[in-house]
Design a protein around this nucleic acid. Structure first.
Length: 553
RNA sequence: GGCCCGGUGGUCAAGAGGUUAAGACACGGCCCUUUCAAGGCUGUAACACGGGUUCGAGUCCCGUCCGGGUCACCA
């Protein structure tokens, strides 16, 4: 025992006496049912849409219960870290309106800003905290230094494989468990690098169980591995940092991705070794992608839609993305929303019981539908401002086009908005240039070819020309809607088309076609596509000259 | 391979032993409309398989199959 004590001092002499963590990080005064949660990304700069989902879940449960949600940066892997990675993640999160009460903030400054009294909230800045706790574990004989090299570990694995034994550093395979103080001192003095491992109290065959908030009661094999808790570089592994940080930061509910489920026994064991009560765990099913007949987790490398930034770039409104994520989160959200179309989503009571244990496919169709409905409810000023802001950032060429005639641009995007049944033709801002670009001459001219196939099937070129010529003669954007329509009907009479659909249906053989064919020709000539808003409105906005030019073309 | 999680239409899912097995998205049809959308109506389509338990199983039990996660000094 005294050896352990001396070993601890020998390994960590420079730190001196441990801090009084009980007073440094006072216990939070939270009442029953209040949840303190956290989102803890690595600063790789890349935010996965699943990360937004996880963050939103943590935010919702914390705030719904009157608790707090904090943001901690898990930057203990110096190899993967990128510059400004934390800031990039924070920015992405704020794009989706997920905000934190505590932790690392977006404010710049040396190493970034933070708020809250349980910090630092960047793990790379908490070295002393982890070392103190590793030291305490060593002193109590619950952890030990291990000098095994990568090569030796590989060799160990090969022997285990040959014998059919479970791989890993555990039990009788954990040779460094039995190193004497003298041996350790000698190796360390010789400059041999070492890690610190947990002396796992688990025995083969032992089971652990706990109640997962999302998956329900779970039972699995207890951990037997002497997991690394402190790496050669002096920084902790995820496992140890999680235990130390969530304990002292007063986190009550750890809601994290599914992939951590398998290491829950390690975490439970670490909490026990520390003598602390573990938090409640909830393991969140991943967002999946279909691939052939199977499905897999959205991959950062292979799937562009895995990145949170993808949605911002395409211009899905953040409200729509959050709305969709809420539907994924709780299966009754959609029903709730239908009953209360205007209620803020914060009023929806989220519950663990309603969270699916299995992963769901990300359904772009559904997202688009949610988004179309959201956009349809926007005021026309809002819609124009948002599409403009998006373009300025992601499609400056289109923003320039809008700027060249701001009044016209606004009018284009105001067509049929705020009506009884508003258009639902835009699911994301990137659809704007796509669906309305032709209103602008530079875009229209750029796409002049290949219009022929758009005309009604079977219609001859000469018929097309005849319709356009006849219409050009009478078109007047100043007409009121009734006058305009009557002109079209008269034009139909003159050219041999039925003046309305019913007439045509009664005797199709008597006509070349019906009024719809005629308006389609005009539409294609004016818009260069088969779908467009109301023809009359479109011409009114385009104005006399533009209409004349396009009919003549 | 070991351990763990999951499996109701193409997708998200409701369903807590007895239902004609909801609803939404997508897809098709019809209606409305000058037209494009939207909207209204409507249609196609599911309990992975095999054994039990039970008067009765999508619901409970066992097995099989399939899918996923995890087995690092990465998180």
């Amino acid at each position: 025992m005294s050896d352990d004590f001396a070993l601890a001092e020998f390994l960590f002499p420079e730190d001196g006496p441990e801090a009084d963590y009980e007073s440094l990080y006072p216990r939070r005064a939270v009442s029953e049912g209040v949840m303190v949660t956290r989102f803890a990304p690595s600063p790789t700069g890349f935010l996965h849409i699943g990360g937004v989902y996880t963050a939103l879940i943590n935010e919702r449960f914390a705030h719904q219960s009157g608790g707090r949600v904090l943001l901690r940066i898990e930057d203990t892997d110096r190899k993967r870290e990128i510059e400004k990675g934390a800031e990039m993640i924070l920015e992405a999160l704020s794009q989706f309106r997920v905000f934190f009460d505590e932790g690392v903030t977006a404010e710049a400054g040396e190493g970034g800003g933070e708020t809250g009294v349980y910090g630092p909230y960047r793990q790379s800045l908490r070295g002393r905290v982890y070392r103190d706790h590793v030291k305490a574990l060593i002193r109590r004989g619950k952890a030990y230094p291990s000098f095994a090299t990568t090569g030796e570990l590989e060799e160990l694995r090969r022997r285990q494989e040959a014998l059919g034994a479970d791989p890993g550093y555990y039990g009788e395979w954990a040779l460094d468990r039995d190193l004497t103080f003298e041996e350790i001192r000698a190796k360390a003095a010789a400059g041999a690098p070492y890690v610190v491992r947990l002396r796992s109290p688990g025995s083969p065959g032992e089971r652990v169980g706990y109640q997962d908030l999302i998956k329900g009661p779970l039972e699995m094999q207890a951990n037997v591995q002497d997991v690394v808790i402190l790496k050669t570089d002096g920084l902790p592994t995820y496992h140890f940092a999680h235990v130390v940080d969530d304990h002292w930061m007063g986190v009550t509910h750890v809601l994290r991705a599914d992939e951590w489920l398998a290491s829950a026994p390690v975490h439970l064991q670490l909490f026990e070794a520390m003598g602390w009560a573990p938090p409640q765990y909830g393991h969140i099913a991943p967002v999946l992608k279909a691939e052939g007949s199977s499905r897999r987790k959205l991959s950062k490398r292979k799937d562009p839609e895995a990145a949170a930034s993808y949605y911002a770039e395409l211009g899905f409104p953040e409200e729509a993305v959050r709305e969709y994520l809420m539907m994924l989160m709780n299966s009754n959200y959609e029903e709730w929303r239908m009953e209360r179309p205007d209620a803020p989503l914060e009023e929806f009571p989220v519950s663990f019981d309603r969270m699916s244990a299995g992963g769901a496919l990300l359904d772009m169709n559904k997202l688009a539908d949610v988004s179309k409905n959201f956009i349809a409810g926007l005021s026309k000023e809002d819609l124009y401002r948002r599409i403009y802001d998006w373009a300025r950032r992601y499609r400056p060429d289109f923003a320039d086009i809008l700027d060249s005639d701001p009044g016209y641009g606004a009018e284009v995007f105001h067509i049929e908005r705020e009506a009884a049944s508003p258009r639902k033709d835009i699911a994301k801002w990137a659809d704007g240039p796509e669906v309305f670009g032709y209103f602008f001459d530079s875009v229209f001219e750029g796409a002049a070819e290949a219009r022929g196939p758009l005309y009604p099937e079977g219609m001859k070129d000469e018929d097309v020309r005849a319709i356009l010529r006849a219409y050009a003669d009478v078109a007047d954007v100043a007409d009121d809607k009734n006058a305009w329509m009557e002109k079209i009907r008269v034009l139909c009479d003159g050219l041999g088309y039925a003046r309305d659909k019913k007439t045509y249906k009664k005797a199709p053989e008597a006509y070349k076609g019906q009024i719809g064919d005629v308006t389609m020709v005009i539409r294609v000539a004016l818009a260069g596509r088969r779908t467009s808003p109301d023809l009359y409105e479109m011409m009114r906005v385009m104005g006399r000259e533009r209409v004349a030019a396009r009919l003549g073309a």
